[in-house]
């Protein structure tokens, strides 16, 4: 049995095969079991040092990675842009090489520029895990989302998943599209036309601008946050108007006549993309996603650390 990933880095879902994704999810099953033991720690990465490089603000992804690393007994160093030399004009390659010179084995990187991890993988000698690069990819989020759908609905194959919200600025959307399609799901994107990339249809997804129709179509709705901090110009007049057209509330869900699953990568803007009664309902698996995030990241770290090149 081949228990190896086909890739050396996790740069994006784009580079993974369906078998890779499957391997990650089944490995995550084992780690999820570990996480529910009294002793939540395993020695798998005891000799591995991991640097978490966050060139952009992040709380949940950083904490999730850090916990996953600690649960695997890795040594870790954290580095964030605010405390770095980046502002002194050091290049990304120099910054990372300086850290690697201190004998670091793997790099987990969050970066504001699309392709930053692909770029880094070509210029430094280390295993790289993309923790989000601009509006490009956020592979571990997509993997934990797929894991959560599989856990809730039995499988991903054949499921109809709608990704709703700011698709244009979202790395979650792109990675989710690639991941869900590789696992055989049907994907729809939905949002105001100003926030849906004009050529998104070329990725083989359905496009819908009407929220009601998207909810009627799907079995899973993945609600994205409106990323005002990424919007350099106005794409809609106000959050109030956004919510009028794209906010999901309980009454709307109840009127569908069947229960759909609500997901959210967080952080939630309560009352904007979903109301509190939706976020806190049994239909929503938002906290389950967070829990699964640690298991899935443990699986990714474990599989990449164990992958040798001979």
């Amino acid at each position: 049995m081949n228990k190896r990933l086909s890739v050396k880095h996790l740069l994006g879902i784009k580079q993974l095969t369906a078998e890779d994704i499957d391997l990650i999810l089944t490995t995550a099953d084992q780690f999820k079991e570990v996480l529910n033991r009294t002793i939540k720690k395993v020695p798998s990465l005891r000799d591995i040092t991991i640097a978490n490089l966050f060139f952009e603000n992040s709380t949940r992804t950083r904490v999730s990675f850090e916990l996953a690393e600690r649960r695997l007994s890795a040594d870790i160093v954290n580095f964030s842009a605010s405390s770095s030399s980046v502002k002194k004009g050091e290049t990304l390659i120099d910054t990372v090489n300086n850290i690697l010179a201190m004998k670091v084995d793997m790099v987990v990187m969050r970066h504001p520029n699309p392709g930053a991890c692909v770029f880094l993988s070509r210029h430094v000698d280390s295993k790289i895990i993309n923790a989000g690069d601009g509006a490009h990819e956020h592979p571990t989020q997509a993997l934990l989302d797929a894991y959560s759908i599989r856990e809730r609905l039995g499988s991903v194959k054949g499921k109809r998943v709608a990704i709703i919200g700011d698709i244009l600025h979202s790395r979650v959307a792109l990675s989710n599209i690639y991941c869900l399609q590789k696992l055989g799901a049907e994907v729809m994107v939905c949002g105001p036309q100003t926030l849906v990339p004009r050529y998104i249809g070329s990725l083989g997804v359905k496009v819908e601008y009407n929220l009601r129709k998207a909810l009627e179509w799907c079995e899973v709705a993945n609600m994205l946050r409106i990323q005002l901090e990424r919007q350099d110009i106005r794409y809609f007049p106000s959050l109030r108007e956004y919510t009028m057209q794209y906010g999901v509330n309980k009454q709307m869900l109840d009127s569908l006549g069947r229960e759909i699953t609500i997901m959210h990568p967080g952080p939630i803007n309560r009352g904007v993309e979903i109301t509190s009664d939706v976020a806190d309902s049994d239909q929503a698996i938002i906290l389950g996603q967070v829990e699964n995030g640690v298991a899935v990241r443990m699986a990714v770290l474990y599989l990449l650390a164990g992958r040798t090149d001979e």
């Binding site: 699309p114 392709g115 690069d133 490009h136 004009r198 050529y199 990725l203």
Partner: peptide, 13 residues
């Protein structure tokens, strides 16, 4: 260029 490639790369078109 704005097109399928910019969409797949998450680069501004």
């Amino acid at each position: 260029n704005e097109g399928p490639t910019s969409t797949a790369l998450g680069l501004k078109g």
